[in-house]
Structures are given as C-alpha cells and as structure tokens.
Nucleic acid binder design. Structure first.
Lengths: 196, 196
DNA sequence: TAGGACATGTAATCAGTTACATGATTAA
DNA sequence: TTAATCATGTAACTGATTACATGTCCTA
C-alpha cells in the first residue's frame, strides 16, 4: 500500500511519537506546545486526539489503556513498525514539501498603517518586540531540556533554528520601527472617522 | 453598531480596497499574490469573492457591474466610508493582534531528521535556500513597483520587512546546513524499513 | 483560430478551532 | 477541601482550499 496522503499535522503527531517512549495525547500536546510550536505550530487537544485515532486506524500507532476498562481511561500511544516506515517514506518523499506559511498580524496592521495613529503603530511593533523576547525565553528553555540527549540531535537543530529566527524577528521589528520613524511627523493623521 | 468580529482575511481584503481606486476580485487576487502573500499569505480566488460578498452585505464595500446586466459580468468594488471607518477601528483596536502563525514544512522534516538520509536532508534545505532566493526576487519586484508612490508608504515598509525577512530566512537555512554538517558522518543511517 | 489571461462563481470537502462536558489525581 | 493539573472526548462551527463550470477578451 502506498503511503496515504495525510495532512502535515498528522505526520507531525506521528513524528512526536517517533522518539523513544510512549505517551498520552495530553503529553503530546504539552510537548508540541513547548517545542513544535516554534516552527510549526501546535494543534489543539481535540485535533491531537482526532489524529491519534486516525493514525491508529491506519495501523501507524497502537494504544494501551492503563485503567482496566473505564471509559476515557488514560491511553498511552506508541508508534508501530508500519508507522515508522510510513513516516520515513514521507520524510524521504522527493516531492517538494509544502510552502512555508507565514501569517503575521502585526505586519498586516503596519501594511494598513495609513489608517492608524503613528503612535499606536509604534506601540504595536514595540509590544511585538517584547513578545518576541518572551518567546525567545521559551525556546531557550526547550533547548536546555533537549541538551545532551543524543536521540534529540535533530529536534535540537530545529530549536536552534527557532532561536536564531526569533532573534532575527526582533531585529526585523526594530528595523521596521526605524522605517516607521523615518516616515517622519510630516505623515498625515488618519482620516477622522466622520464617514459619509 | 460596534465593529463586528471578522476573520483577519476579511480585513486584509478590505485593506486591499483601502488604497485609492476601485478593483475587481480578480485584480485583488493578483495584488495579494504579488505582495500580501509575503507577510500574510494570499487567499484563494473563491475566498476573495466570498469575502467581498460578505463585506458588501455589511455595507463596507459597494460594487458596480460594468456589463449591463449579463450574469457574471465584471464587477468592480470600492470601499465605503463605513468600511473605511470599520477598518480604521479594527486597525486601532487595542486588543492584541492574533499570534504570528508560522508553519514551516522544511523544519518539520529537519526535526524528524533521524528518519531521513542525511544527504536527502541536506538537499532539501539547499533547495529551500534556492526557493528563498526566488521569493526574494519577487519581493524586490513588488518593491520596485511600489517605489515612489506616496500613498504606498506603509505597504513599502511591509515589503521592506519582507525583503529583510527573506534574507534572514536564507541565512537561517545556511546556518542549519552547517548544524546538519556538524552532526558528522558518525550519525547512524535511518532504520531500514524492514518493519515488524 | 487557438491559447492565454481575464473574470466570476458553485460544490464539496477538510483542517482546525472553540466551547463544552466529564472525571481522576495531586498539591496547597 | 479546594484548586490546579492531568486526561479524554463530543459537537458545532468556520476558515479556507480544491476542483470544477462558464464565458469573455485579447493577441500571436
């Protein structure tokens, strides 16, 4: 059977399980929140559980419930040989990976800057710089946790990339602040919303 | 009436119409493809048309069909005073703009590098560098088109940000290539997919 | 006169989120 | 004993894409 076409998120969830050990959906979500999210985003709980069910249907993971047979007992998942093979086939796929998708609400507002108060715009970007700083802290913590674990060499590279990318994000925002300032006070204030 | 809660994409489409002139859905799509996409992504044709209908329902845009009354005649849209006021209110909104969303398929594969051939991984990232170069060309063309038009000062800042961000993306990829190389040939080849 | 760009739209589907419900376990 | 965290799931919705249908206008 050829590898079925699955959304990237399904491969991401399966990927989370490709590292040694078995884990619950809840744990997967926590892990995604603390590292996957820096370069791919973290799916909601409900979607992780849905993906796990789909992957189990495909035989890519197996689950073991740890309460005897209460409904909704804790359920730990592990990847199967088949799952590992399918994931490797996907990773090796010679077709181009999908396009990078970037949706940047801050930029959207700057782009529309002609309708905003210059000061408000400046504050928005400044807040983004501060937020980026906080994100950077998060990525560094993840990096510290992954440090020295030989099985996590590649995740570490991804996190290092994320760290540098957040540093760049801060730089970029500061550059934009300068561009905004260079517009000068000659810039007209936005139309008063006295519509007609 | 308070500004209704709309998806960011609706504001983006309305934003496209906030610059002088009236345009068709088709033109909006072309414009989104050549500049909005670098920092926010470009919605599909079908979605642009859908958003335009919604915006017209809200009274934020008006349309003028240029064929007499054939169905599906060319239809040019323009923003209304109400639309401009709503957009300005949204832009000024003190609530935090949504989170930056980044989905990077290349990073997803690098993160899962333990299942791939090192050489394949290297090729993947190298291709990404080449792709980034082509994107950079696109952004520079857009920048050239916007050059000197006083009404496009803010779009220009957004494009300048995009240019720098693509330069950084290339840098980042090259850094990752180095990290990958530093893993050395001591790295074990992936499990042969002889599953069990 | 054929092909490509212009132009608009429908239908089907899907990916993904939010809100909600439920209950066990653990720590203050 | 109360709150937080752990843990799993359903239901409803919606944002957005893909594939398709249709037709005009312009140009090589």
């Amino acid at each position: 059977m050829p590898t079925p076409r699955l959304p990237q998120t399904a491969w991401a969830v399966l990927g989370l399980l490709s590292f040694p050990g078995e884990r619950t959906g809840y744990e997967l979500k926590k892990w995604a929140d603390s590292s996957l999210r820096f370069f791919y985003g973290a799916p909601a709980f409900s979607q992780i559980y849905a993906e796990l069910r789909r992957l189990e249907g495909l035989g890519y993971v197996t689950s073991r419930r740890s309460g005897p047979d209460e409904p909704r007992a804790k359920r730990a998942y592990a990847i199967t040989g088949e799952g590992r093979a399918a994931l490797a086939a996907w990773a090796a796929g010679t077709d181009a990976p999908g396009a990078v998708s970037l949706k940047h609400p801050v930029l959207l507002r700057v782009w529309l800057g002609h309708l905003a108060e210059p000061e408000r715009l400046r504050a928005l970007v400044a807040e983004h710089v501060a937020h980026t700083e906080r994100e950077l802290k998060g990525v560094r913590e993840a990096l510290a946790r992954a440090d020295g674990v030989e099985a996590w060499a590649h995740p570490q590279i991804a996190l290092r990339w994320s760290e540098r990318r957040l540093e760049a994000e801060g730089e970029l925002a500061r550059g934009m602040l300068a561009d905004l300032a260079a517009l000068g006070p000659g810039q007209p204030a936005p139309d008063p919303p006295t519509c007609g």
